[in-house]
Simulated scan of single mutants.
Amino acid sequence: MEAGTIAAVIASGALIGFVLGLVGGGGSILAVPLLVYIVGLDSPHAAIGTAAVAVALNAAAGLAGHARAGNVKWNCALVFAGAGMLGAAIGAEAGKAMNGQHLLAAFGGLMIVVGGLMLRGRKGGSDPDVHLDRTSARHLLPRLVGYGLGVGLLAGFFGIGGGFLIVPGLIAATAMPIGVAVGTSLVVVTALGATTAGSYALSGYVDWGLVAWLVAGGIAGSVLGRMAGVRLAARKNLLERGFAAVVIAVGAFVAATSL
Rank of each mutant, 00 (worst) to 15 (best):
I166N: 06
V189W: 05
G152K: 05
L202R: 15
W213I: 01
G161H: 07
A172D: 13
L140S: 11
F157C: 07
G156E: 08
F164C: 08
A181K: 10
L202N: 13
A175I: 15
A201C: 05
G163I: 08
L170S: 06
V151G: 02
L141A: 14
T190G: 08
G163W: 07
T190N: 11
A197D: 03
G217P: 06
L192N: 05
G217R: 01
L186E: 01
T195E: 10
V167M: 10
T184H: 05
G150F: 04
L153G: 00
A181E: 10
I171D: 07
A181F: 11
L149A: 12
A155R: 08
T184M: 02
G148F: 13
Y147N: 08
D207I: 02
A181N: 13
L141N: 13
F158T: 02
V151P: 02
I160T: 07
P177E: 14
L186M: 03
G146W: 12
T190Q: 13
G179N: 15
L192M: 11
V189D: 01
T174H: 08
L154M: 11
L186W: 02
A175W: 15
G162Y: 02
I166S: 02
L141E: 13
P168V: 06
V182S: 08
G183A: 04
H139M: 15
L165K: 08
I171A: 10
F157G: 08
P168A: 05
A212I: 07
A155I: 12
V188W: 12
L141S: 14
G204Q: 00
G146R: 07
I166H: 07
A194I: 09
G146P: 10
Y147E: 06
T174G: 09
F158E: 02
V188Q: 07
V180N: 13
